[in-house]
Amino acid sequence: MTLNLILPTTGATFLPRQAADSIPFSSTKLPEILSRLSITPNSIEAEAMKKTLQECEQPAINGETKYCATSIEAMVDFSTSSLGTRNVEALSTTVDREAPPKQVYSISKVQKLPSSKLVVCHSENYPYAVFYCHTTISKAYKVSMVGKDGTKVKAVAACHTDTTGFDPEYVAFKVLNVKPGTVPICHFPPQSAIVWSPNK
């Protein structure tokens, strides 16, 4: 399969939980947040923050629980409580070196994760690290691949078996020319995403 795997650039870092908890995280407090972080109102950065806050405040889709983690401790707590165990594994896609864009990869190994209940955390656009985390029921796999140039990749693949509650505008439906709830959708989460799974 042909994939475009780009090594993630260094993004925002997590604040310690105490520091993150001392800063408001609500769209109603945006002027105060901008002032505390010395960010100009109406700037591109301020607009990105507003969008992140609004996304974090939207209700979860049916059957999911969601949470925006502003510290690594908060992410671990949400993931372990959602999965019902502290014995978890955090997985993400890793690439051993810079690879050319849209390279052909051969799959060398596929290993199914032991549980279909997962927590997936996606990085958000914010001055410090914020991850949008949500529970999902998916079949997930660890996938080892080798690129045409020898690049080694350890990826996570998630297959959503029930897409009934998904947004009909989700890009996968357009690419595959299908409707929500008709077929499973499989994808590689972005490299900045973290997939939490019970480690049995």
Rank of each mutant, 00 (worst) to 15 (best):
P168W: 13
K154T: 09
P127L: 10
T163V: 08
K139P: 01
S116V: 12
Y132I: 08
V153N: 07
I107L: 07
K152Q: 11
E124I: 03
H122T: 11
S108T: 15
P114V: 03
N125I: 15
M75A: 13
G150R: 02
S81E: 01
G84Y: 02
T85A: 01
S82H: 04
E73I: 06
T94H: 11
Y141S: 15
A155F: 04
S108L: 11
A155G: 05
Q111C: 03
D149W: 11
S144Q: 15
K142A: 10
A140L: 00
Y128M: 14
V119N: 01
H122K: 14
S108A: 13
A74H: 01
K102L: 10
D77S: 06
R97E: 01
M75F: 02
F166A: 12
A129N: 05
M145D: 01
S108I: 14
S79R: 03
V156E: 10
V110Y: 03
V88M: 06
G150Q: 02
G165S: 12
T151R: 00
Q111M: 12
R86A: 11
A155I: 04
D162L: 04
Y105Q: 02
A155C: 09
E73K: 07
M145N: 06
V88D: 05
V143M: 12
K117D: 07
L113M: 13
V95L: 14
M145Y: 08
K109D: 12
V95D: 03
T151M: 01
V143F: 08
V88A: 00
S106F: 10
A74I: 04
G147C: 05
S123F: 12
E124G: 09
S106M: 09
V76P: 00
D167C: 02
D162G: 06
A157Q: 15
T136W: 01
V143I: 15
K152F: 07
T94G: 02
P100A: 06
D96I: 03
H160I: 11
N125D: 14
T94D: 05
Y105M: 06
T93M: 11
A140P: 02
V156H: 07
R86S: 13
K139E: 15
N125W: 14
T136H: 07
I107E: 11
V120N: 13
N87A: 15
V156C: 10
T136G: 12
T80I: 14
A158M: 14
V143W: 11
K154V: 07
D77A: 05
C121W: 00
C121K: 08
Y105H: 11
G150T: 03
E98H: 03
T85P: 04
A158S: 12
T135V: 03
S92K: 08
S144G: 08
K148R: 12
S79L: 00
G84H: 06
K152C: 00
A90Q: 07
G165N: 13
D149R: 11
C121N: 02
P114L: 06
Y132T: 02
P100E: 08
V76H: 01
I107N: 13
G84E: 03
K148C: 00
S82R: 02
K117M: 11
L118W: 07
V88C: 04
L83C: 04
L91G: 05
V120K: 14
A74M: 06
N87K: 15
T93V: 09
T80N: 08
P101Q: 08
D167N: 13
V120E: 10
S123Y: 10
C159T: 12
V120H: 12
R86F: 12
P127E: 07
G84I: 04
